[in-house]
Amino acid sequence: MLNEWLLNFARWLDSFAWSTAIHESFYLYAWIESTHVLAIMVFLGMLFIIDLRILGLAFAQVPAARIAERLDKPMMIGFAVMVITGLLLFFAIPVRSTQSVWFRIKVVLLIAAGINAFLFRNKMKEVRRDGREEVEPSKRLRLGAGTSLFLWMGVVMTGRAIAYDWFDCHKDLSYAMYWVAGCVDEMALVE
């Protein structure tokens, strides 16, 4: 049901002339993807350093809350560019992306990373409200930073894996794999 709905949505996006235009334009597509990678350098670079500080592995002599607060704005600028270019890349190749196992795992990791970031930010707000900026991060905050590192690394890695066609619908896969990838037509053929 969800697979059908997602595929219909992807096919609807695919019907836009602009989707095909981006996909077929060598320079436009390549530049959007390059910008996506450069934005990862900005966003993830800042995020890594913030997380490493919370874990006590960088800037040990500077309060963690200060590092997190001061790097937030450049990090969010990188995030915005990353999201915009990411959406454009999805828009350019909607059907294959929707039916990519890697893309699906990436989205799940993105949601998990988003929830983790939301909880992390709330905890940091509490720290500031209570005037505990100078205190070393609690165990819970450190756990959040470690989780964030792993989740975002996972997002980048699965994002890179989308380029590989190991589990694409045209391959001979098991029914379960077709289901996970959302290969609706192939599932119907097996049935």
Partner: peptide, 19 residues
């Protein structure tokens, strides 16, 4: 996997350079 590690390290390098 090596390519993914390359990309993750690029992000770390970007952070260190930019900051």
């Amino acid at each position: 996997v090596v390519q993914m590690v390359h990309l993750v390290s690029l992000a770390l390098l970007g952070g260190a350079v930019l900051i």
